[in-house]
Write a protein that binds this DNA or RNA. Sequence first.
DNA 1: TTAATAATAGGAACTATTACTAATTTACTC
DNA 2: GAGTAAATTAGTAATAGTTCCTATTATTAA
Lengths: 134, 134
Amino acid sequence: MEGHNTKLSKQRELVLQIVRSTKMHPTAEDVYYKAKKTMPRISMGTVYRNLRLLSKMGRIKEINFPDSPTRFDGDMRDHYHIRCSECGRIEDISHFSPRAAVDEIEKLTMYQIHTVHIKYEGICPECQKKSKIS
Amino acid sequence: MEGHNTKLSKQRELVLQIVRSTKMHPTAEDVYYKAKKTMPRISMGTVYRNLRLLSKMGRIKEINFPDSPTRFDGDMRDHYHIRCSECGRIEDISHFSPRAAVDEIEKLTMYQIHTVHIKYEGICPECQKKSKIS
DNA sequence: TTAATAATAGGAACTATTACTAATTTACTC
DNA sequence: GAGTAAATTAGTAATAGTTCCTATTATTAA
Ligand SMILES: [Mn+2]
Ligand SMILES: [Mn+2]
Ligand SMILES: [Zn+2]
Ligand SMILES: [Zn+2]
């Protein structure tokens, strides 16, 4: 009913609901401890598996900053994130385009921005050829 | 002579030279195996320690893409990176500003871009207050 | 040279995450 | 509701990447 070979377990529902119901961008560990309040016997493995699955299903998003565990976001609207390098909090930047200048973001968020990470991912010309052949 | 409390060891020099002398954006493991050819007794710990140190000293840069080990870049000129999601290679995008549009990059690199990561890091208003006090 | 201190090799420890497996749960079908 | 196959689970072991620890060695300044 959800996707292809996915049965809807209580655990999966709970994990989704937890990630959706917060703006804190929780880690897997955060989700685990919240889930335990409702389902004391839920396991870490289950939390990780469902987070990964929900992410592949496009129901939640993963947020990766260097040197810190992956965080999850139940807000699927198009937005970017800003992290405080002191306290580690992650906040939303609503609907910002790649063109946005750093000083505009500083004004909006009141952050003192010192680092901008921009990364592109795609298929290289060589791999494009390969997939045409196969 | 280098930084604050840094003595210039043979190992440190070698690690720096290896990272500087390639455009492959090597992992710590890559650097380790290259280093072993010159210094067969060098240890992983030494490689990691020096990569971290050189990075803090501003002599090399770290590149973090999700789900893959950290890579290092001896090219300190301002530039971004693009990764192929098929083969994992990382290439330079010479001197590109954040304003650059994706289709411009596609034309330049011949990649089929499907993901853009933009991340900002800075100090949040709360932490700015804290550091004023202390 | 010597003394002080930083760096090293080697290995243990750590952290986040994934993999394994027997038991359980879910979704179908009757 | 019972029967069945497949997916999911809890619990635990394993993994990868990286950092930490400690006794020994190298570097630097005097
Ligand atoms: Mn968000
Ligand atoms: Mn580069
Ligand atoms: Zn902060
Ligand atoms: Zn490729």
